[in-house]
Design a protein around this nucleic acid. Structure first.
Length: 350
DNA sequence: AACCCGGGGAG
DNA sequence: CTCCCAGGGTT
Protein backbone atom coordinates (compact mmCIF):
# COMPACT_ATOMS: atom_id res chain seq x y z
CA UNK A 1 0.00 0.00 0.00
CA UNK A 2 1.13 3.53 -0.69
CA UNK A 3 1.45 6.18 1.99
CA UNK A 4 -1.70 7.79 0.65
CA UNK A 5 -3.69 4.54 0.66
CA UNK A 6 -2.72 3.77 4.24
CA UNK A 7 -3.73 7.24 5.38
CA UNK A 8 -7.06 7.18 3.61
CA UNK A 9 -7.79 3.67 4.86
CA UNK A 10 -7.17 4.92 8.41
CA UNK A 11 -9.30 8.00 7.73
CA UNK A 12 -12.30 5.99 6.55
CA UNK A 13 -12.41 4.32 9.94
CA UNK A 14 -11.48 7.26 12.14
CA UNK A 15 -12.71 10.50 10.59
CA UNK A 16 -14.31 13.05 12.86
CA UNK A 17 -17.95 13.98 12.45
CA UNK A 18 -17.62 17.71 11.78
CA UNK A 19 -20.29 20.02 10.35
CA UNK A 20 -18.14 21.37 7.51
CA UNK A 21 -17.54 17.82 6.32
CA UNK A 22 -21.20 17.60 5.27
CA UNK A 23 -20.90 20.24 2.55
CA UNK A 24 -18.81 21.35 -0.40
CA UNK A 25 -20.26 24.83 -0.43
CA UNK A 26 -17.12 26.98 -0.69
CA UNK A 27 -18.64 29.62 1.59
CA UNK A 28 -18.89 27.18 4.46
CA UNK A 29 -15.53 25.57 3.73
CA UNK A 30 -13.86 28.98 3.54
CA UNK A 31 -15.51 30.06 6.80
CA UNK A 32 -14.35 26.91 8.59
CA UNK A 33 -10.81 27.17 7.23
CA UNK A 34 -10.37 30.78 8.31
CA UNK A 35 -11.71 30.00 11.78
CA UNK A 36 -9.44 27.00 12.19
CA UNK A 37 -6.22 28.83 11.33
CA UNK A 38 -3.97 28.27 14.36
CA UNK A 39 -7.08 27.19 16.22
CA UNK A 40 -8.10 23.78 17.51
CA UNK A 41 -11.21 22.22 16.04
CA UNK A 42 -12.70 22.00 19.53
CA UNK A 43 -12.26 25.74 20.07
CA UNK A 44 -13.52 26.84 16.65
CA UNK A 45 -16.54 24.55 16.44
CA UNK A 46 -19.01 26.64 18.45
CA UNK A 47 -18.02 29.79 16.53
CA UNK A 48 -18.62 28.00 13.24
CA UNK A 49 -22.12 27.05 14.35
CA UNK A 50 -22.90 30.62 15.41
CA UNK A 51 -21.57 32.16 12.19
CA UNK A 52 -23.37 29.76 9.86
CA UNK A 53 -26.61 30.35 11.73
CA UNK A 54 -26.19 34.13 11.89
CA UNK A 55 -24.82 34.42 8.34
CA UNK A 56 -26.27 31.59 6.20
CA UNK A 57 -24.83 33.09 2.99
CA UNK A 58 -21.87 35.23 2.03
CA UNK A 59 -24.32 38.07 1.43
CA UNK A 60 -25.52 37.96 5.03
CA UNK A 61 -21.92 38.19 6.21
CA UNK A 62 -21.16 41.01 3.77
CA UNK A 63 -24.16 43.01 4.91
CA UNK A 64 -23.29 42.80 8.59
CA UNK A 65 -21.30 45.54 10.30
CA UNK A 66 -17.65 44.86 11.06
CA UNK A 67 -18.39 45.45 14.72
CA UNK A 68 -21.04 42.74 14.66
CA UNK A 69 -18.61 40.31 13.04
CA UNK A 70 -15.92 41.13 15.60
CA UNK A 71 -18.41 40.75 18.43
CA UNK A 72 -19.29 37.23 17.29
CA UNK A 73 -15.59 36.51 16.81
CA UNK A 74 -14.84 37.72 20.35
CA UNK A 75 -12.68 35.21 22.23
CA UNK A 76 -11.41 33.36 19.18
CA UNK A 77 -8.28 35.50 18.84
CA UNK A 78 -6.27 36.68 15.84
CA UNK A 79 -8.88 39.32 15.08
CA UNK A 80 -7.40 40.29 11.73
CA UNK A 81 -8.95 37.03 10.53
CA UNK A 82 -12.40 38.43 11.31
CA UNK A 83 -11.69 41.74 9.61
CA UNK A 84 -10.28 40.00 6.54
CA UNK A 85 -13.22 37.60 6.55
CA UNK A 86 -15.67 40.47 6.48
CA UNK A 87 -13.76 42.38 3.79
CA UNK A 88 -13.54 39.27 1.62
CA UNK A 89 -17.25 38.56 2.05
CA UNK A 90 -18.01 42.08 0.83
CA UNK A 91 -15.65 41.64 -2.12
CA UNK A 92 -17.23 38.34 -3.14
CA UNK A 93 -20.77 39.61 -2.67
CA UNK A 94 -20.23 42.86 -4.57
CA UNK A 95 -17.56 42.16 -7.16
CA UNK A 96 -18.09 38.44 -7.79
CA UNK A 97 -21.88 38.29 -7.42
CA UNK A 98 -21.46 35.95 -4.50
CA UNK A 99 -19.57 33.35 -6.53
CA UNK A 100 -16.36 32.07 -4.94
CA UNK A 101 -13.18 31.69 -7.00
CA UNK A 102 -12.83 28.06 -8.08
CA UNK A 103 -9.07 27.61 -8.28
CA UNK A 104 -5.97 27.94 -6.12
CA UNK A 105 -4.52 31.02 -7.81
CA UNK A 106 -7.66 33.10 -7.54
CA UNK A 107 -8.51 31.87 -4.06
CA UNK A 108 -5.08 32.87 -2.80
CA UNK A 109 -5.71 36.45 -3.89
CA UNK A 110 -8.44 36.79 -1.28
CA UNK A 111 -7.55 38.64 1.93
CA UNK A 112 -6.73 36.21 4.72
CA UNK A 113 -6.33 33.29 2.32
CA UNK A 114 -2.79 32.00 2.09
CA UNK A 115 -1.23 28.86 0.66
CA UNK A 116 -2.86 26.51 3.14
CA UNK A 117 -6.39 27.88 2.90
CA UNK A 118 -6.36 28.21 -0.89
CA UNK A 119 -5.20 24.60 -1.17
CA UNK A 120 -7.82 23.40 1.30
CA UNK A 121 -10.71 25.06 -0.51
CA UNK A 122 -9.46 24.06 -3.97
CA UNK A 123 -9.07 20.42 -2.97
CA UNK A 124 -12.14 19.99 -0.79
CA UNK A 125 -14.62 21.96 -2.90
CA UNK A 126 -13.27 21.39 -6.41
CA UNK A 127 -11.10 18.26 -6.15
CA UNK A 128 -8.01 20.07 -7.38
CA UNK A 129 -4.75 18.29 -6.44
CA UNK A 130 -3.40 21.05 -4.16
CA UNK A 131 -1.63 19.69 -1.10
CA UNK A 132 -2.26 21.37 2.23
CA UNK A 133 0.54 21.78 4.73
CA UNK A 134 -0.65 22.68 8.20
CA UNK A 135 0.90 21.90 11.58
CA UNK A 136 -0.41 18.35 11.41
CA UNK A 137 1.04 17.70 7.97
CA UNK A 138 4.46 19.01 9.00
CA UNK A 139 4.50 16.63 11.92
CA UNK A 140 3.27 13.55 10.05
CA UNK A 141 5.69 14.04 7.15
CA UNK A 142 8.69 14.97 9.29
CA UNK A 143 8.26 11.82 11.35
CA UNK A 144 7.25 9.36 8.68
CA UNK A 145 9.95 10.39 6.25
CA UNK A 146 12.53 11.34 8.85
CA UNK A 147 12.94 14.89 7.56
CA UNK A 148 15.04 17.06 9.86
CA UNK A 149 14.71 20.35 8.01
CA UNK A 150 13.20 22.95 10.35
CA UNK A 151 9.52 23.25 9.48
CA UNK A 152 9.52 27.01 10.03
CA UNK A 153 12.55 27.74 7.85
CA UNK A 154 12.06 28.95 4.31
CA UNK A 155 13.77 25.80 3.08
CA UNK A 156 11.55 23.59 5.21
CA UNK A 157 8.38 25.28 4.02
CA UNK A 158 9.34 24.53 0.40
CA UNK A 159 10.54 21.02 1.13
CA UNK A 160 7.43 19.88 3.00
CA UNK A 161 5.10 21.50 0.49
CA UNK A 162 6.84 19.65 -2.34
CA UNK A 163 6.76 16.38 -0.42
CA UNK A 164 3.05 16.71 0.33
CA UNK A 165 2.42 17.54 -3.31
CA UNK A 166 4.23 14.35 -4.37
CA UNK A 167 2.17 12.24 -2.01
CA UNK A 168 -1.31 13.63 -2.64
CA UNK A 169 -3.79 11.25 -4.25
CA UNK A 170 -4.81 13.06 -7.46
CA UNK A 171 -8.03 11.05 -7.64
CA UNK A 172 -9.22 12.17 -4.19
CA UNK A 173 -7.15 15.19 -3.13
CA UNK A 174 -9.76 16.55 -0.73
CA UNK A 175 -10.00 13.26 1.10
CA UNK A 176 -6.22 12.88 1.20
CA UNK A 177 -5.77 16.35 2.65
CA UNK A 178 -8.36 15.86 5.34
CA UNK A 179 -7.05 12.38 6.08
CA UNK A 180 -3.48 13.50 6.74
CA UNK A 181 -4.67 16.38 8.93
CA UNK A 182 -7.01 14.18 10.97
CA UNK A 183 -4.29 11.57 11.29
CA UNK A 184 -1.93 14.20 12.66
CA UNK A 185 -4.51 15.59 15.04
CA UNK A 186 -5.80 12.28 16.41
CA UNK A 187 -3.04 9.68 15.94
CA UNK A 188 0.36 11.19 15.14
CA UNK A 189 -0.13 13.73 17.94
CA UNK A 190 2.53 16.22 19.11
CA UNK A 191 2.82 14.50 22.49
CA UNK A 192 2.33 10.82 23.12
CA UNK A 193 1.62 9.74 19.55
CA UNK A 194 -0.06 6.34 19.23
CA UNK A 195 2.90 4.62 17.59
CA UNK A 196 2.14 1.17 18.96
CA UNK A 197 -1.16 1.04 17.11
CA UNK A 198 -0.02 2.97 14.05
CA UNK A 199 -0.93 1.57 10.63
CA UNK A 200 2.12 3.34 9.16
CA UNK A 201 4.56 2.07 11.75
CA UNK A 202 6.51 -0.17 9.36
CA UNK A 203 7.32 2.61 6.95
CA UNK A 204 7.86 5.34 9.56
CA UNK A 205 11.49 6.47 9.68
CA UNK A 206 11.09 8.20 13.03
CA UNK A 207 9.64 5.07 14.63
CA UNK A 208 12.32 2.84 13.12
CA UNK A 209 15.14 5.10 14.25
CA UNK A 210 13.50 6.01 17.58
CA UNK A 211 13.44 9.74 16.80
CA UNK A 212 9.71 10.38 17.10
CA UNK A 213 10.22 12.76 20.03
CA UNK A 214 12.84 14.74 18.08
CA UNK A 215 10.58 15.44 15.12
CA UNK A 216 9.49 17.75 13.69
CA UNK A 217 12.42 20.14 14.10
CA UNK A 218 11.41 23.73 14.78
CA UNK A 219 13.59 26.82 14.99
CA UNK A 220 13.83 29.00 18.05
CA UNK A 221 10.84 30.84 19.35
CA UNK A 222 10.75 34.55 20.10
CA UNK A 223 10.84 35.75 23.69
CA UNK A 224 7.75 36.80 25.57
CA UNK A 225 7.52 40.53 26.20
CA UNK A 226 6.28 41.87 29.53
CA UNK A 227 3.93 44.86 29.36
CA UNK A 228 2.20 46.86 32.07
CA UNK A 229 -1.33 48.11 31.40
CA UNK A 230 -3.35 50.53 33.47
CA UNK A 231 -6.97 50.80 32.40
CA UNK A 232 -8.85 53.89 33.51
CA UNK A 233 -12.41 52.77 34.09
CA UNK A 234 -14.33 56.01 34.25
CA UNK A 235 -17.81 56.47 35.60
CA UNK A 236 -19.57 59.82 35.65
CA UNK A 237 -22.58 60.93 37.62
CA UNK A 238 -24.69 60.10 34.56
CA UNK A 239 -23.35 56.53 34.41
CA UNK A 240 -21.23 57.16 31.36
CA UNK A 241 -17.72 56.05 30.57
CA UNK A 242 -14.99 56.31 27.95
CA UNK A 243 -14.73 53.24 25.74
CA UNK A 244 -12.83 53.45 22.47
CA UNK A 245 -11.77 51.32 19.55
CA UNK A 246 -8.14 50.24 19.31
CA UNK A 247 -6.55 51.57 16.17
CA UNK A 248 -3.13 51.16 14.65
CA UNK A 249 -0.95 48.12 14.25
CA UNK A 250 -0.80 46.35 17.56
CA UNK A 251 -2.97 43.78 19.28
CA UNK A 252 -6.76 43.85 19.33
CA UNK A 253 -7.23 46.18 16.39
CA UNK A 254 -10.92 47.01 16.05
CA UNK A 255 -11.78 45.90 19.58
CA UNK A 256 -12.87 48.27 22.36
CA UNK A 257 -11.23 49.10 25.65
CA UNK A 258 -11.02 51.71 28.40
CA UNK A 259 -8.44 54.52 28.24
CA UNK A 260 -5.08 52.83 28.58
CA UNK A 261 -1.96 54.11 30.31
CA UNK A 262 0.96 51.82 29.58
CA UNK A 263 3.92 52.00 31.94
CA UNK A 264 7.33 50.36 31.97
CA UNK A 265 6.70 48.79 35.38
CA UNK A 266 3.89 47.99 37.75
CA UNK A 267 2.98 51.36 39.27
CA UNK A 268 1.32 52.72 42.42
CA UNK A 269 -1.46 55.27 42.27
CA UNK A 270 0.97 58.03 43.25
CA UNK A 271 3.12 57.24 40.19
CA UNK A 272 0.22 56.72 37.86
CA UNK A 273 -1.33 60.13 38.35
CA UNK A 274 1.91 61.79 37.28
CA UNK A 275 2.12 59.88 34.00
CA UNK A 276 1.65 62.15 31.02
CA UNK A 277 -0.85 59.73 29.49
CA UNK A 278 -2.88 59.78 32.67
CA UNK A 279 -3.04 63.58 32.71
CA UNK A 280 -4.18 63.50 29.11
CA UNK A 281 -7.26 61.54 30.11
CA UNK A 282 -8.00 62.84 33.59
CA UNK A 283 -8.01 66.57 34.15
CA UNK A 284 -11.05 66.70 36.38
CA UNK A 285 -11.29 66.10 40.10
CA UNK A 286 -11.67 62.37 40.54
CA UNK A 287 -11.80 59.62 43.09
CA UNK A 288 -9.55 56.72 42.16
CA UNK A 289 -9.74 53.16 43.46
CA UNK A 290 -7.65 50.22 42.36
CA UNK A 291 -10.01 47.36 41.48
CA UNK A 292 -7.59 44.45 41.53
CA UNK A 293 -5.14 44.13 44.40
CA UNK A 294 -2.87 41.83 42.38
CA UNK A 295 -2.02 42.54 38.75
CA UNK A 296 -4.20 40.57 36.37
CA UNK A 297 -1.78 38.75 34.07
CA UNK A 298 -3.26 38.14 30.66
CA UNK A 299 -1.06 35.82 28.63
CA UNK A 300 -0.85 36.06 24.89
CA UNK A 301 1.50 33.82 22.96
CA UNK A 302 4.04 36.60 22.54
CA UNK A 303 3.43 38.98 25.43
CA UNK A 304 2.25 38.97 29.03
CA UNK A 305 0.02 41.86 30.01
CA UNK A 306 0.26 42.84 33.68
CA UNK A 307 -2.91 44.80 34.13
CA UNK A 308 -4.38 47.11 36.74
CA UNK A 309 -7.95 48.35 36.50
CA UNK A 310 -8.35 51.77 38.09
CA UNK A 311 -11.92 52.77 38.89
CA UNK A 312 -12.22 56.50 38.40
CA UNK A 313 -15.33 58.23 39.71
CA UNK A 314 -15.95 61.79 38.67
CA UNK A 315 -18.85 64.15 38.19
CA UNK A 316 -18.41 64.55 34.48
CA UNK A 317 -15.89 63.98 31.67
CA UNK A 318 -15.82 65.49 28.21
CA UNK A 319 -15.22 62.16 26.43
CA UNK A 320 -17.60 60.03 28.48
CA UNK A 321 -20.13 59.26 25.78
CA UNK A 322 -20.83 55.56 26.29
CA UNK A 323 -23.57 54.54 28.70
CA UNK A 324 -22.30 51.95 31.11
CA UNK A 325 -25.15 49.53 30.40
CA UNK A 326 -24.37 49.36 26.66
CA UNK A 327 -20.82 48.08 27.02
CA UNK A 328 -21.81 44.49 26.27
CA UNK A 329 -22.60 45.45 22.66
CA UNK A 330 -18.99 46.18 21.85
CA UNK A 331 -16.39 43.62 20.78
CA UNK A 332 -13.72 43.47 23.48
CA UNK A 333 -10.56 41.49 24.25
CA UNK A 334 -11.00 38.60 26.68
CA UNK A 335 -9.01 40.64 29.22
CA UNK A 336 -11.74 43.31 29.21
CA UNK A 337 -14.58 40.80 29.03
CA UNK A 338 -13.28 39.03 32.13
CA UNK A 339 -13.00 42.31 33.99
CA UNK A 340 -16.54 43.36 33.10
CA UNK A 341 -17.88 40.00 34.17
CA UNK A 342 -16.08 40.17 37.49
CA UNK A 343 -17.34 43.68 38.05
CA UNK A 344 -20.82 42.42 37.25
CA UNK A 345 -20.68 39.77 39.95
CA UNK A 346 -19.84 42.52 42.43
CA UNK A 347 -23.02 44.35 41.50
CA UNK A 348 -23.05 47.74 43.18
CA UNK A 349 -19.35 47.88 43.94
CA UNK A 350 -18.77 50.56 41.37
C1' DA B 1 14.19 36.11 7.29
C1' DA B 2 12.15 37.94 11.31
C1' DC B 3 8.44 39.54 13.59
C1' DC B 4 3.62 40.26 14.80
C1' DC B 5 -1.03 38.63 15.72
C1' DG B 6 -5.06 35.49 20.74
C1' DG B 7 -6.71 32.39 23.31
C1' DG B 8 -7.08 27.96 25.13
C1' DG B 9 -6.13 22.99 25.98
C1' DA B 10 -2.94 19.24 27.07
C1' DG B 11 0.82 17.31 29.55
C1' DC C 1 5.52 26.04 33.38
C1' DT C 2 5.96 24.57 27.78
C1' DC C 3 4.14 23.46 23.50
C1' DC C 4 1.12 24.07 19.75
C1' DC C 5 -3.21 24.43 17.36
C1' DA C 6 -6.87 22.76 9.98
C1' DG C 7 -1.67 30.24 9.21
C1' DG C 8 -1.46 34.89 7.17
C1' DG C 9 0.38 39.48 6.78
C1' DT C 10 3.90 42.97 7.23
C1' DT C 11 8.48 44.75 7.37
Amino acid sequence: MTFSNKLIFWYLQNDRDLPWRKTRNPYFIWLSEIMLQQTRVQQGLSYYLVFTKEFPTVFDLANASESKVLKLWQGLGYYSRARNLHATAQYIASDLNGIFPDNYTDLKKLKGVGDYTASAIASICYEHPEAVVDGNVYRVLARHFGRQTAINSSLGIKEFKALAQELIDPKQPGTFNQAIMDFGALHCKPQNPLCTSCPLQNSCVAFTTNTVKELPVKEKKTKVKQRYFNYLVLLTKENKTVFTERKGKGIWQGLYEFPLVETTNSVEESELVYAAEFKKYIKEEAKIVLFNKEDTVHKLSHQHLHTKFWLVKLDEHKDAEISWDTLQKYPVPVLIANFLEELDTLNGYF
